[in-house]
């Protein structure tokens, strides 16, 4: 029995390329936001904030394509899962993009004021969640549920770093009340990054579903 290519499957393929592109942009935006925060680079922070409109447009375009393909082709089996997954993934990707913007806004609020102390754990958290996003994207294009599951394992590191940041910042703030404002902002940043880890985990679960048809809850 031979497999037949079809215009519909070409459209599905290009849809997945769009999801990948959006994911790549978001991963970059997150890196820029955290770097802008660590270095007090306001211009870089503004670029991240300005970039969000483009991401929103991409999200809407992908959703529209998914709905159109579902309506016109009434897909089943893996075709249906690819479309259902794309609809879910763009939401998670868009939320990650929002958090990149949130972090960039903190950078703007802090207005390049000297930091309490050099950021260590926050950039490390950012590095882990960015790695999660990159692995999501490669698991997505390679249709590799094993990689997706492995990636989800990284979320423990994120949670661990988050509690450490939380504890340390709290201690700083109690000790020197003049650091409270900055400490509160940095706490928010850590919380955004922790949420990004959760979105990456969702992403990974959807990849497992897309490839295997099994719905899993891997961060339970």
């Amino acid at each position: 029995m031979s497999l037949r290519p079809s215009p519909f499957h070409d459209q599905l393929e290009s849809l997945q390329q769009d999801v990948l592109k959006m994911g790549t942009i978001v991963e970059q935006a997150l890196g820029d936001a955290v770097a802008a925060l660590a270095s007090g680079d306001l211009e870089r922070a503004q670029r991240v904030i300005a970039g969000d409109d483009e991401l929103d447009r991409m999200e809407i375009a992908i959703e529209q394509t998914c709905l159109t393909l579902i309506a016109l082709h009434q897909p089943l089996a893996s075709d249906l899962r690819i479309l259902g997954t794309a609809l879910k993934l763009v939401t998670d990707i868009e939320r990650i993009g929002d958090h990149a913007v949130d972090i960039a806004k903190v950078a703007v609020r802090l207005d390049a004021e000297p930091l309490i102390k050099p950021l260590v754990d926050i950039p490390e958290m950012a590095a882990v969640v960015r790695r999660m996003i990159r692995e999501c994207l490669s698991a997505y294009v390679r249709r590799d549920p094993a990689l997706a599951r492995e990636m989800i394992g990284l979320d423990d590191q994120v949670d661990h770093l988050y509690s450490r940041v939380f504890r340390d910042l709290l201690a700083e703030m109690i000790e020197s009340p003049d650091k409270t404002r900055q400490g509160a902002y940095l706490l928010l940043v850590a919380q955004y990054l922790e949420r990004v880890g959760d979105h990456a985990t969702n992403f990974g679960e959807w990849i497992v579903y897309m490839v295997t048809g099994e719905r899993v809850d891997l961060n339970a």
Binding site: M1, L3, R4, L76, A77, R81, G213
Partner: peptide
């Protein structure tokens, strides 16, 4: 939505 057999999959996705 999630057939187990490759042949079902190929039929449902019109790839035959």
């Amino acid at each position: 939505t999630a057939p187990k057999d490759r042949r079902t999959e190929d039929y449902l996705t019109g790839r035959f």
